[in-house]
Design a protein around this nucleic acid. Sequence first.
DNA 1: TATTGTTATACTCTATAACTATA
DNA 2: TATAGTTATAGAGTATAACAATA
Lengths: 160, 160
Amino acid sequence: MDSPRQKRSAQDNTAGRPGDSLDTRMLEGLVGYNARRTWLAISTVFSERMAAYGLKQVDFSVLSLLAHNPGATSRQLCATLDIQPPNLVSLISTMDGRGLIERRPHPHDGRAIGLHLTAAGVQLVQDAEQTVIELEQDASARLTTRERETLIRLMQKVYR
Amino acid sequence: MDSPRQKRSAQDNTAGRPGDSLDTRMLEGLVGYNARRTWLAISTVFSERMAAYGLKQVDFSVLSLLAHNPGATSRQLCATLDIQPPNLVSLISTMDGRGLIERRPHPHDGRAIGLHLTAAGVQLVQDAEQTVIELEQDASARLTTRERETLIRLMQKVYR
DNA sequence: TATTGTTATACTCTATAACTATA
DNA sequence: TATAGTTATAGAGTATAACAATA
């Protein structure tokens, strides 16, 4: 207890010296804070490397889901990714305009539209998934393979 | 390899059946995806319980940092929390207006402003921190104490 | 009556350029 | 010349209400 690391009395007023880093032990003891920082760190690398494909995180998630779930509906994507239907409309429309996906009438439900990757879409997702896997390795390079598996397992234990 | 869990051929077109959940194994193998979901899960509980204090996540982070770093400057808060200076202005102003913090001339630097909690601020942070600790326990209740420590340690290994 | 996809819209969050006062 | 705080503003991201077509 009472680790001397970054120890600084709350009485004296030395925190304001510019250049000094702050005592963040309280925040760093929280799962939420650390989860956000972790996501932000990966997110930065993701944005850098995926710009080459013209894909943001949501774009990648949607395309990757369609690669493994051909014919999925807009509604299913929304439920899976926890996004609101109106916010998916322009994304789908853009992907369609880029020739990456196509909308086909749904076989069982006249209200719904089945979403499918085009040949170009399949190729792009294949490359993008490979890039994401590499980028994730690099962004979490300080973890061993076993630690990475443990981390993912524990995170899923929280939210799943 | 080739686990039968959620196995579904990419050829047949069964994904579009409403009510079906999608195969998310690719995304769930990514640190970034899981970190975001984890943060989102905690975030939801946080918003619910911290509404009583009128505090959002950033608000809490700033006030808690000031509790443990009296006299910290706006610049230091920005660097610590990775937010842009302009986005902190209205937050600080609001906290000042609520009588939770006060701005004092900085002892060593005439450009800077030292930020301090008021007595009311100290009391609020004390209560809020307690609520956050409880809320975190509840939101990560499926983790043992040891697992929670491991999770935090591994997350910090990624971003720190 | 409920659900799918959609439009319009608003609100929050985050980022950038440019100014002032001080170092 | 550089830095702290600030203003104004623009762009993402996210949320709600309401509608037409179909179940």
